[in-house]
């Protein structure tokens, strides 16, 4: 059996992992969702195409997304320290997680919105809807299941990244796995943390899929 101290540590690990995942997903969406809307709106087939704005956002997104997360994590240390006051621990990890997630989320949101039937947008325009109304009442509503699928995938991804940040002292389950499993050869603890990560991932996927199926009215 595991010592109470280890159990305590694992519980804290779960808490920290969930904390990092949830906060970075939410913060990521606060930045990424408007970014995605902007990408869609200014895109070629958007409500108000604008090559300059689109290209600039597109370029920044691609740059950030092409830097591997671990490198981004290290590159951002000075910035993280400036914002959080320290460069290790769960709260500090949230900074690079959000910066990594926002452009990714922007892309995911953009592609969800691109899937919305052009005809429905046209119908709304014919009724006299403004662009703002079209964004909030048509695009985001009609794309909701696709957006939620994207949300689920993003949450899973950030769960994985938060674990990865353990290699540089990011806190959470990943941190435990690295410290005990890698440096101290405690294989059992490592296996348990990995199993916990898999379980959390599955739960996120399960809830996501359930919610999406429940909310989708397109096919029944």
């Amino acid at each position: 059996m595991l010592e109470p101290k280890v159990v305590q540590m694992l519980l804290e690990g779960i808490r920290d992992t969930l904390y990092m995942t949830i906060v970075s997903t939410v913060a990521g969406y606060i930045i990424g969702l408007p970014l995605g809307v902007l990408l869609h709106v200014t895109g070629e087939n958007g409500l108000r195409p604008n090559v300059v704005i689109y290209r600039v956002i597109d370029f920044i997104c691609n740059i950030i997304r092409s830097v591997p997360f671990l490198i981004l994590l290290i590159l951002l240390i000075p910035f993280t320290r400036l914002i959080v006051g320290q460069s290790y621990g769960s709260t500090a990890t949230i900074v690079p997680l959000v910066i990594c997630a926002a452009p990714y989320i922007g892309r995911v949101v953009e592609s969800s919105l691109n899937e919305v039937d052009k005809g429905v947008v046209e119908a709304a325009r014919s009724m006299g809807a403004s662009n703002i109304q079209i964004i909030f009442k048509v695009l985001l509503v009609e794309a909701k299941t696709s957006l939620l699928t994207g949300f689920t995938i993003t949450t899973g991804l950030l769960l994985g990244y938060s674990a990865m940040s353990g290699t540089v002292g990011g806190g959470g389950l990943g941190d435990i796995a690295v410290r005990y499993g890698y440096y101290r050869w405690k294989t059992d603890i490592m296996i348990i943390t990995v199993a916990l990560l898999i379980i959390i991932f599955q739960i996120i996927q399960y809830i996501g899929t359930k919610v999406v199926t429940k909310l989708d009215h397109r096919k029944r």
């Binding site: 039937d117 005809g119 429905v120 119908a123 009609e142 397109r218």
Partner: peptide
Amino acid sequence: FQNFNLLEQK
């Protein structure tokens, strides 16, 4: 319209 263009989620 030809394709009706109804809001599928409403």
